[in-house]
Each structure stands twice: as C-alpha cells, then as structure tokens.
Amino acid sequence: MAQSTKNQIINTKKAIYLLLGITAISSVVVSFRTDAYNRVPEETTMARFTAAEAAEPDSIVSKKAFLQAYKVLMHPRCMNCHPVGDRPLQGDDSHIHTMNVQRGKDGKGLYAMKCSNCHQPQNTPGLHMPPGNPDWHLPPADMKMVFQGKSPRELAQTMLNKNENGHKDHEALIEHVAKDSLVGSGWNPAEGLAHLPMSRAEFVKHFKTWLDKGAYLPDK
C-alpha cells in the first residue's frame, strides 16, 4: 500500500463516518438496482448491458463476481477482523486473537487493550509482529459486519443489508472496498502472513460487477 498517511487519514475518517451510519452522501444517482432482496425481474436491467455481457445472464455474471470477491472477503486478511462474537481473529489459521482482546463499543478495543496500543500506523517489521494501520479496528458493536462462518449467499445478504453494512448503498460499498485505508491493509500483510489471492483492483472489479450486474445473491 503506497498511500500517503494524509490520504489514509482522510479515508479513515470517511470510513468511520460511513460505518457509524451518519451518511451524508446526498446526490448519488444510483442507476442500478440497489436491493437484491426486492428481486426486481431480470429483464428490467438486462437491456443496459452490451451484447457480449448479455451472452451470460446478469444473474450469473453477478453471482460469479461475488464468488470471486468472496475469496478475498473470507481470507484471513479480511475475515479476521469480521469475526463471529466480539473477539478478533489472528493469523492464517484465524485463531482467536490471544490476550482476550475484545471489540469494544466503537470496535477499537477496550481499556488497556485498544487495537492501536499494539497495532502501529504501519506494519511492525519482523515475523509475528503486529500488522499496522493508522485506524486499526473492528466494526463497531452496533454494526458488526460478521463475515466468519458465512456462506457466499449469507455474506452477500449481509453486504447488502443496510442495517448490517453500516447503512451503505452500493456506491458507498464500492467506495469502502476501493478506497478505505484499513480495507487496503489486507493487501499489506505483516511479514510471514498469507497474501490475498488477487489484487485490490481485481477485487474491486469483481465486487463492482457483482453490484452493477444486479447484486444477485449466490445460490448457497
């Protein structure tokens, strides 16, 4: 990750802003379907796409794209901070974080065990050292965004449910995965930790395709 600290801070602030659900995005024109739950008939959106894309129905393209993005979302680099329960996970085996670390109300830990007490603005060099980011945290207690244990379909539902996703619409979701500094930390693992299976750009492309093509829920 080669973003400047300033940018990271700006993005971070934005992320929190969004996570807390005090959304101020006002003039976003959402030209595609925003809620897969409503199950808008496919043909209403089909015409928007090119013939090449149309060779495969949007529902298939969208689901396939999500399954690609799912590989990243469920990778330890992402999932470890989206646990079931209130304890973050650690390492490539996603074991429960040692030291009984707890989420805390704002997702930043509790008391003497706040994330940034150990997690520095940058990765600390060396094996088994704390990975870093200026805003290391979990989702807040009132918006836990649990990934762990979810099937693709369940995770897609979580992603789309504004009551679970930090009140994000599609654009905000894309903005989050594309620009958020802490999300970006997933592509900057600490020494010795597994890398994500694709670049951030690829991931964002899949994620965006999933949404752009109708935000279909995978079958399982």
Partner: peptide, 10 residues
Amino acid sequence: EDIDTAMSGN
C-alpha cells in the same frame, strides 16, 4: 470480566 479484558495483555 472487565479486569480480564483490560489486563490480559500483561
């Protein structure tokens, strides 16, 4: 429980 949370890093 709060003590467990706060002090388990030491």
